[in-house]
Structures are given as C-alpha cells and as structure tokens.
Design a protein around this nucleic acid. Structure first.
Length: 222
DNA sequence: CACCAGGCAAGTA
DNA sequence: TACTTGCATGGT
C-alpha cells in the first residue's frame, strides 16, 4: 500500500470534516495579531486576549505600537508567555508603522518579500510568517505546524515527525496547485485532524478519517 | 497531580 | 549546523 498523495489526504479530510471556514477575524490585523498570540497556546486562550484588546478598544496597530508595555501585558496575559508576546507584538507593530505605515501597505508586498520581511521580525518564525501570509494577507503559502508533522509521520512512514519545516512544506507545495482556498482549508483540516484524532497521547489513529491509508493505523489493527 | 497547547529565539557545543 | 532551554496561562 503506497502512501496517499497530499490531494488524496485532503479529499478524505474534507469529506470527513467538511469545508472549514477557518481563522476568520474581523480584519487582517486581527488575524495578524492572532497568529502571533497563538504560538504554543490554544486558540481558546488567544480569544480571551483578543477580546481584552477589543474591549479596551485597542485592536489596531497604532494603539498597540504606542501602548505602555504593562498595559499590553495585562491585556494579552491569557495567551501565555505574555511578557515575551507583549514586547514582541509591540515592537513588531512599531516597525510596521515606522517602515510601512500600515498593515495594508505591508500586505501589498510581493509574497516572497513579505515572508522574508516577516521572518526578520523578532517573534515571527516560519509557521507564524506563513500563517500571516496565508490567512491575513491572503496569499497562497503552505503552512506547516506540529499537527501537520505528527499526522504526516503517521500517515506516511517515509516522513519523520522531526522532518524539517522547509522540507515538509516543499513536499506539499511540489505536489499541489498553488491555490489560496486549498492551502487555507488544507491547513485547517490538519489542525482539526490533530485536535481530534492525532494528539500525542493517541499514537494509534484508529478512528482517524485517513485511517484507510494510515500505515500506523493498519499496523495497529493487525 | 501531570501533561499539553496551531512556536520562537537565545544559548551551547 | 544541530540540539537544549526559557517562556506562562488555562484546560483536561
């Protein structure tokens, strides 16, 4: 049994979970902030932080870039690592305001240039940069995260859970059409799969919707 | 109680 | 280059 192709995996997930209207945010800036705050944290906690920023009427780049650090810390506290995140978020917003005036201007950049610029900010790594490019700027950039690595390592024995970020990203991009809605929904499907069927404590994905093609599941079923 | 969540950057060898 | 460590709240 050969490992399923990315498109075959997507079709199975899509059939199981349906289309996921994922990471909606009222504005691109809200998505941008959410992408940074959600690092190594549950979305539930990020929602609290975002709600705090909204309640304080501060969910805009000017407010955050000029805010006192202690105030921003108190607002984003529920998202965890709050001191690091507050400082990094503020510094990133400051740089965007100073060097690009607005998020809208930033997002008018070429896709590769935007990604490189985002990576140059302290606090934005590969996954966050790609998430921002894909969901906030709306450009097709495939996102890899811990769930994607874990799920793929179980679905395809040739892929290690410790696979490099760029390596796995290229694996998908080389086998899929570069299409915005596909990239957005595929990543959402992987997160849904991860949360429901592919957690660390669930080494055998018996109920996994991709189980028919999952080597790990078949091995366990024997 | 222990363990984990949609990472990142700085430090070490 | 490749590993290790600190960061922190909130849910199960």
């Amino acid at each position: 049994m050969r490992a399923p192709t990315p498109l075959a995996i997507y079709k199975k997930l899509r059939g199981h979970f349906g289309f996921l209207d994922w990471w909606p945010g009222d504005t691109p800036f809200e998505v941008f902030v959410g992408a940074i705050l959600t690092q190594q944290t549950t979305w539930r906690n990020v929602e609290k932080a975002i709600a705090n920023l909204k309640d304080a009427n501060c969910l805009d780049i000017k407010s955050i870039s000029g805010m006192r650090l202690e105030k921003l810390e108190s607002l984003v506290r529920p998202s965890g690592y709050y001191r690091q995140k507050a400082r990094r978020l503020r510094d990133i917003c400051k740089r965007v305001v100073e060097e690009h005036a607005s998020i809208e201007c930033l997002f008018r950049m070429d896709r590769d240039q935007l990604r490189k610029l985002l990576l140059s900010y302290n606090g934005i790594g590969e996954e966050t940069a790609d998430s921002i490019v894909l969901y906030a700027a709306g450009m097709p950039e495939f996102v890899i995260d811990a769930y994607t690595k874990r799920a793929m390592s179980r679905i395809n024995p040739a892929i290690s859970e410790n696979v490099g970020y760029d390596e796995l990203k290229s694996y998908f991009e080389n086998r899929l059409e570069r299409e915005l809605e596909l990239y957005k929904d595929f990543h959402a499907q992987f997160v849904e799969l991860g949360k429901n069927y592919c957690k660390k404590k669930m080494p055998l994905c018996q109920k996994c919707p991709v189980v028919g093609s999952c080597a790990f599941g078949k091995k366990a079923a024997k």
